[in-house]
Design a protein around this nucleic acid. Structure first.
Length: 479
RNA sequence: GGCGGCAUAGCCAAGUGGUAAGGCAGCGGUCUGCAAAACCGCUAUUCAUCAGUUCGAAUCUGAUUGCCGCCUCCA
């Protein structure tokens, strides 16, 4: 089955054929490390994490490059504000980034280059552009001349004339065209700087991605990704630099993920509604975050709300509850190797269609319902056929989970983790609950239903839900 | 002003020419001491509106309305 990907470059879905058979080179714009990561970063990173996992599952040898922008105006400003070295600031946030990503079960890319460690490559690309008269020097700054690149605007669908009409006035007067952008910025006192043919300075924002993608993936590579907001100017400028310098097509497929809104509002500094990953993880299980992010197609905007998160959480509970149920059946414990089942196949069909995780997740729930049905239907003992089916379905669910990066815990660990998080927030002692459950059990044995229901009512007020199962009573915390 | 996107049940969300997935919520049922969980059934004759193309459209075209994004650092 061929994979079809929506290519921003041509604004349509195209059949994905890599340059080298069986291999994929993918470059994704990583964070500028001047602050904690927010849920928007999480969406982008989880999206491409799943894409990389899926491509690997389809037996592609994936070289996944995701950079760190570790030198930049924002980093310098922030470092100056709090009075520390900009390198130290970048390191602090790189570490924090890894903490967030590990929590979210994001796999490490193949290569994670930093801008500051590729100054030589950056300078080389700038020199080529100057040689080709596509870049020019003013004082000690180097600018890219967009008019020298005839395809400028092809990714974002803009025409130079149109843009000039709407351009802002606060442009650098020295530039030939208001949309020319800096390749190299001369150092001001106190700023991090590197030696260059044009004096001490540092790279502009866009050039690092051109230099580093070429370094690790070549002058032309398969996939370039990032958030929608990067289409213009960042990715447009990357194309101009790379195709200008090397005279070859740059990335062949451009993939852009949509935004995350918070209660229908765009995250913005002025609204102060940036939701940081580390804060969200205080309230929600990491898998809930992933399931929420993947419940919509990656290109659609999504709205982060408590309700949406609760629904994702309920869905996850449903799947883990099924695992728990399956584990309780001894005859299902010998998991032998099973063939790839129909659900996994359906999931792949969804993913082949522009990584449609929303549709893929519906397959997950279909499989869950079918196993539950089989378990419900055969109370007195499972037939060999049912056992075979259940094991196969469950194996499919786990395989799908492996691509979505969820369902990697044991049900016990999952529910225990949820319990302690929820109880911790409400500062309830689990021992108290255990005692109440035991009391209720006593009452039930004595057929003292009034007392049993009274205790259940008290627990419910505490957001504790009771389930009387054949094997005994268990309790859960309401989402 | 320029460019682009979206509008599907109470809510979330797939579906891009062949007669409306899935989840949450709701209702009825099975199970249960009663519940919960799970399962079964029901819940959009209809896909913002209006025209058009077609044997056939949520899916294509045009217009209208509404929402959103980008054009400036931004995932």
């Amino acid at each position: 089955m061929a994979i079809r990907i929506y290519n921003t470059l041509n604004r349509k879905k195209e059949i994905f054929v890599p340059i080298k058979q069986g291999r994929v080179g993918m470059y994704v714009c990583g964070p500028t490390v001047y602050d904690s990561c927010h849920i928007g970063h999480a969406r982008s990173i989880v999206t491409f994490d799943v894409i990389a996992r899926y491509l690997k599952a389809k037996d592609f040898e994936v070289t996944y490059v995701r950079n760190f922008t570790d030198v930049d105006d924002k980093i310098i400003n922030r470092a100056n504000q709090i009075g520390i070295d900009s390198k130290a600031l970048a390191e602090k946030y790189i570490n924090e980034f890894y903490e967030d990503m590990d929590a979210l079960n994001v796999e490490r890319p193949t290569i994670e280059p930093k801008a500051t460690e590729h100054i030589a490559q950056i300078i080389k690309v700038i020199e080529i552009l100057i040689d080709k008269s596509m870049a020019y020097q003013i004082d000690s700054d180097i600018f890219f001349a967009i008019q020298s690149f005839k395809d400028y605007g092809k990714l974002s669908g803009r025409k130079l004339e149109d843009m000039e009409a709407g351009a802002r006035v606060d442009v650098d007067e020295r530039k030939r065209n208001p949309f020319d952008f800096a390749l190299w910025k001369s150092a001001k006192p106190g700023e991090p700087a590197w030696d260059s043919p044009w004096g001490k300075g540092r790279p502009g924002w866009h050039i690092e991605c051109s230099a580093m993608s070429t370094e690790y993936l070549g002058e032309t590579f398969d996939i370039h990704g990032g958030g929608k907001d990067l289409i213009f100017p960042h990715h447009e400028n990357e194309i101009a630099q790379s195709e200008g310098a090397f005279g070859k097509p740059f990335a062949r497929f451009w993939i852009h993920n949509g935004f995350v809104n918070i209660n229908q509002e765009k995250m913005s500094k002025s609204l102060g509604n940036f939701l940081m990953i580390k804060d969200i993880l205080k309230s929600f299980h990491p898998e809930t975050v992933r399931l929420f992010l993947l419940s919509s197609h990656y290109r659609s905007p999504i709205d982060f709300t408590d309700k949406a998160m609760d629904e994702a959480s309920a869905g996850l509970d449903k799947i883990y509850a099924l695992f728990e149920r399956v584990e309780e059946k001894k005859e299902l414990s010998e998991i032998n190797d099973v063939e790839t089942g129909n659900y996994y196949k359906q999931f792949c069909e969804a993913m082949d269609d522009d990584f449609n995780t929303a549709r893929g997740i519906s397959v997950l729930f279909d499989a869950v319902r079918n196993i539950n049905r089989l378990l419900d239907e055969t109370k007195e003992g499972l037939s060999q056929e049912a056992i075979k089916d259940i094991i196969s379905y469950k194996s499919d669910i786990l395989k799908i989970g492996g691509i979505l990066g969820i369902l990697y815990e044991s049900p016990e660990a999952y529910f225990e983790g949820k319990k302690s998080k929820a109880l911790g927030k409400k500062s309830i002692d689990p021992a108290v609950i255990e005692d109440m459950v035991k009391e209720r059990e006593k009452a039930r044995k004595a057929k003292n239903w009034a007392e049993a229901d009274k205790i259940r009512g008290q627990l419910e007020v505490m957001n504790i839900i009771i389930e009387d199962r054949p094997e005994g009573t268990i309790w859960k915390v309401k989402a």
